[in-house]
Amino acid sequence: MSTPAPRRDDRYGKGARAGRAGAVPYLFLAPAIVLFLLFFALPIGYTAYLSLRRTRVSGLGLGKGSRHEIFVGLDNYKDAITDAEFWRSWVRVLGYGTVVLTVMLGLALVFALILDSEAVRLARFGRISIFLPYAVPGVIASLMWGFLYLPSLSPIHQALHAVGVDDVNLLDPSILTFSLANIAVWGGTGFNMLVLYTALRATPRDYYEAARIDGASELQIAVRIKIPILLPSIVLTTIFSIIATMQVFTEPTTLRSISNTISSTWTPLMKVYRDAFVTGDLYSAAATSVIIAAISLIVSFGFLRAVRKRAFADEE
């Protein structure tokens, strides 16, 4: 054959180059593409369209023809960003997210390093137990913790009572952020631990042997060798966690049913839900969700840019 040596990712290429595959890859991809267009592209476009429109009521607003949709440009966006409560909800999510990201990812990293080190007993039991909350839906987790926060039921209150502390309300607005963050930390640590642990197990053990022979301690190996190896995985888990945190909805919504300290617009997404389904203003809801999406993308890309050089430099 006189063709040049194939590039590495051309190793499957024969069939396609010979034209034999033809339409086959498109055929295989057709279900995914059709569903992607219907359930991703179309809804995104529809949201953008709705966000530029509004219902105008003419006359007394009675009868069928009196309400119609009109184009209002960026008015809905203007309303959303001048709504002080919307920004207060972002401030709350920022505080909540800072606690969740640092504690959850910090714990996940420490547990993954512990599991991977030689210096641990009961590793299997620990791994399964810490991963277990991943099997518990967010609604149920919030329910469980919600009951654990209720003064009339909670063993936490019983324990505090036993040491003489009595007037703590774990659902009080002043500590609500931490009570909510705790639910997310409880539910999410195991999954992130597993991601990091899998990455560690995939690393050849002889990476550490030389350091061990030189007398490095497990702690030194963890900090100097394992954490740098893990950086790409840490970056990706952080990005997924940022996206999930900004969309927090289930936990505060569930807790609302047993506590009156959470407003219906506690998080940005709760405001979207309220606008769309409680006050029936789809247009504001659409504009607000575009803003949430934009902020999530800016933050996750911003984070990626900020750490990219450090995390991926040696992978090129």
Partner: peptide, 9 residues
Amino acid sequence: VPSVVLAIP
């Protein structure tokens, strides 16, 4: 893409 942008539309 945040799921909120998708679920309502």
